[in-house]
Every structure is written in structure tokens, then in C-alpha cells.
């Protein structure tokens, strides 16, 4: 089937199998490999992107369902080379080790700050609770998001 998906502001028209998962559309069809895949059961959140401005586990939606909608991925976080405060926060606070969960974590964090500019540590923990990080014990991810909240100037 033919789909039209707007990814990071660009419309992509592609012929795809209806069963193609959004994560594979992004990674294999569009070469946007920043979003990752980590489980079969929608538990890990390595694949989180925005679909129509709401975070989703992109392994759990069909590309067909994104037809006519907007997708935003980690590749769209920086603005002309200028890092988003969330990206800066992760680098500043050692919010990542292997970096595999990081894109998904940052997409959720960006969304959280857009809706709650001054979250508590507890709210950050709640927001990322559907996403697994095997490296950081979450401590520095929480600090990274709080750092971003503090250094947000304009945001996106």
C-alpha cells in the first residue's frame, strides 16, 4: 500500500507492506537509525518517537497507521546543529552510557518538558517508566532531564 508520512517535517511517499512496523519504516526505509529496537513485547521503549506530537513505541504501530500523520524522531531534536537542551542535559549529566536507550529517552523527555516545564524528579521518573535503560540506573537520566528543564531557553 502507499503511505504518506511526514517525518521530521519532510513528506515521504512510499510503497510498503501493511504489516511494516513504524520502527522499521524509519530505520530500514528512511535510514533514520537513531531510533532503536530492543524488544518484542512493547516493554523497552528504545523505539519511542512522536506520532502526531505524542510519544509512541514505534515498534507497536504499523506504518499504515502513521499514514497521513507526522512523526518526529531524535534526528529532529537539534536545530541547525544547535543541540536541544535535552540533548545538552544528557551530555552534561552523563545521562547515557551505551546510548542505545538515549534517543527514546530524549524524545519522552522533550515531550514531558513541553507539557510540564518544571517537573519534579518523581515526575521525570514516572514519565520514563515505560522505557528501560540497562546502563545508567536512571539516576543520571533524571538529572539530565532536570538539567534541561533548568536550562530551557525557548525550547522547541
Amino acid at each position: 500500500m502507499q503511505v504518506n508520512v511526514t517525518v521530521n517535517g519532510t513528506v515521504f511517499t512510499r510503497e510498503v507492506e501493511p504489516r511494516l512496523l513504524l520502527i522499521h519504516f524509519l530505520r530500514d526505509e528512511l535510514g533514520l537509525t537513531g531510533s532503536h529496537w530492543g524488544c518484542d513485547t512493547s516493554n523497552c521503549g528504545a523505539c519511542v518517537v512522536w506520532l502526531d506530537d505524542v510519544p509512541v513505541k514505534s515498534c507497536t504501530v504499523l506504518t499504515a497507521m502513521a499514514d497521513g500523520r507526522r512523526v518526529r524522531t531524535v534526528e529532529d531534536l537539534d536545530r541547525g546543529g544547535q543541540l536541544d537542551p535535552v540533548q545538552q542535559g544528557f551530555a552534561e549529566c552523563h545521562g547515557l552510557q551505551c546510548g542505545f536507550c538515549t534517543p527514546g529517552m530524549m524524545m519522552t523527555a522533550r515531550w514531558l518538558l513541553d507539557h510540564n516545564p518544571d517537573p519534579s524528579a518523581e515526575q521525570v521518573r514516572e514519565a520514563i517508566s515505560g522505557q528501560v535503560c540497562r546502563c545508567t540506573g536512571y539516576e543520571n537520566i533524571v538529572r539530565s532531564v532536570l538539567w534541561a528543564a533548568k536550562h530551557e531557553g525557548g525550547g522547541t
Partner: peptide, 17 residues
């Protein structure tokens, strides 16, 4: 601060898959 983070926070890590 880590040198490698420049690529990871941009989603430019390079993994096997």
C-alpha cells in the same frame, strides 16, 4: 564530559543493526 556523547545524543551512534 564524554567525547562519545556528541554522536549518541544526536542519534548518530553506529550500531550493528
Amino acid at each position: 564530559r564524554r567525547k562519545e556523547d556528541a554522536r549518541f545524543v544526536r542519534g548518530k551512534g553506529h550500531f550493528v543493526d
